[in-house]
């Protein structure tokens, strides 16, 4: 049976990528190493085939990455001949642009906004292609494909351009830029089904494995150098997998035995918690995502 809805979503995403390359001078593709950005790289390859991807991949590195994602990133970039640019939160800290959070729940998630905006400015990026999807979170349900940011990188939900039919308006003044979201209409399940259909390689921690974990307020965090235990906490060996691969300090795992794509799809289809639901950063307040977005978060 043909997956008509996946074909439509793929065609739409490719259309958006090409529209970006045509309307902008200096696009870049935001690359995190997660499954969504891997799907985006795949779509970008298809969009410009047989030419190489005509824009670089930009990785904002918090320094708290899962090692599996970096390994795959470097291998992929080499394989497809893409250009990769890495900017690190550590550099921003060293240059005094930001201050490291303190305490047991310290995270570099907020800090990466500054690193990102600095990098976009430095590289004169006028269109940053991101993998955000409207189904992820309420504030994103109104996001545009071509999302306008003012000169401070801020998103003003009241000042977004209407998007009609398949006509996208990427006109901008000097200093302004756009975030482009080719996967806007995809759901988590679509991503997984597409990964399966296209045979896209993803980092191993998406699949079920055993790992040392700590349960902190209901969020399962992986053992790493950046997390220290609080009173009463212990590392425990668990059978888990990750549904997203952000910063290790705030990306929660789920207990799961899904070890293949088919099993993951089965699990996602019947899941009771959205994938962002396992992220500690979203749970801080009801409007957490909207606040971060306004400041320039993806």
């Amino acid at each position: 049976m043909r997956n008509i809805h996946l074909e439509r979503l793929e065609s739409e995403a490719i259309y958006i990528m090409r529209e970006t390359a045509a309307q902008f001078e200096r696009p870049c593709l935001m690359f995190s190493g997660g499954k969504d950005s891997l799907v985006m790289v795949h779509l970008a390859r298809k969009a410009f085939w047989p030419a190489p991807i005509p824009f670089p991949l930009l990785h904002v590195d918090t320094g708290h990455n899962f090692p599996e994602t970096l390994e795959l990133r470097d291998r992929l970039v080499k394989e497809i001949g893409a250009k990769l640019i890495v900017r690190t939160v550590q550099e921003s800290i060293d240059r005094g642009r930001v201050k490291e959070e303190k305490g047991p729940n310290a995270s570099r998630n907020m800090l990466q906004i500054t690193t990102l905006l600095d990098a976009l400015k430095e590289l004169k990026v006028d269109s940053a292609i991101g993998g955000a999807r409207r189904d992820e979170e309420k504030a994103r349900a109104k996001e545009r494909f071509f999302s306008h940011r003012d000169r401070f990188g801020q998103w003003d939900p009241k000042n977004q351009r209407p998007e009609l039919w398949h006509i996208f308006n990427g006109r901008r003044h000097a200093g302004e830029h756009f975030r482009i979201f080719p996967l806007s209409n995809w759901t988590e399940l679509d991503i997984w089904e597409y990964i399966l259909m296209q045979g896209i390689e993803i980092p191993s921690m998406y699949f079920s494995h055993e790992r040392e974990m700590v349960d902190r307020d209901g969020v399962l965090l992986a053992k790493c150098d950046y997390i220290s235990l609080l009173d009463g906490e212990t590392w425990k060996r668990e059978t888990i997998r990750f549904r997203t691969v952000g910063d290790m300090t705030c990306t929660g795992a789920i207990r799961s035995t899904a070890a293949t794509l088919e099993e993951i799809i089965e699990e996602v289809a019947s899941a009771r918690v959205t994938e962002r639901g396992a992220r500690a950063d979203d749970m801080r307040s009801e409007a957490a995502m909207e606040d971060r977005k306004k400041q320039g978060y993806f």
Partner: peptide, 27 residues
């Protein structure tokens, strides 16, 4: 479905919001 905070506070929807769901027949 009332997405943004301003809307929640005013109790009205002020823009187009997109939602997704599927059944075994259709997305």
């Amino acid at each position: 479905t009332d997405g943004l905070r301003a809307e929640r506070e005013q109790g009205i929807t002020i823009d187009v919001a997109y939602r997704y769901f599927s059944t075994p027949q259709r997305k």
